[in-house]
Amino acid sequence: MGVINGGFGGRHGSSDPRLPPGQTHVYDWPVLSTGPTPNVDEGRWSFTITTEDEVTHRWNWGELQEVGVEDVVTDIHCVTHWSKLDMAWRGVPMDRLFEDVETSYDYVMVRSYGGYTTNLPLEDLLDGQAWLATEAEGEPLTPEHGGPARLLVPHLYFWKSAKWVRGMEMMPSDDPGFWEQNGYHLRGDPWREERYW
């Protein structure tokens, strides 16, 4: 549209090449949630992957640690225009959790304690692109940031990185999750600015 706001200088904080279009670098960590923060006790926590054959793969908290964690340094991008760079995360690679999962379906519905859902193509969860994260910046994830465990899919807008995650269900088609039913993009690639539909 070509509007120039003459008096606007801007901080040019968005000149960092690691920032996708329309994003601003922040140093704090904003919290966005649709409702009250659920209190999820590690003792009653479990994570499941369910397939079309109704086979359920399940890990409790101790079993998850045994799968093996890895450290990841990555940038995260929220659709509300902030990005946080070089965050230190620790989590279990989704590749390992899917090792023994047999499915012909290509899509996944992620489900969280508290009722949140989000949809993803399976290929966005594999090949070293996604983790079940339990720590950020050297500390266990706090409840407001999704603790004890949240999904980490840093190459997509952060609403895909579901907090308080409890399971994944394989799906034959890319059915929309919570925000995807409420006006947000089905895939959410920040480099293509796939924010809304």
Binding site: D28, W29, T34, P36, T142
Partner: peptide, 21 residues
């Protein structure tokens, strides 16, 4: 958090937050 402690159903509570921790 207080609303949940006061007996409100979490599913009835919608929130919008700004700013960080």
């Amino acid at each position: 958090g207080w609303l949940v402690e006061l007996g409100h159903d979490p599913a009835q509570i919608r929130t919008e937050r700004f700013g960080g921790s």
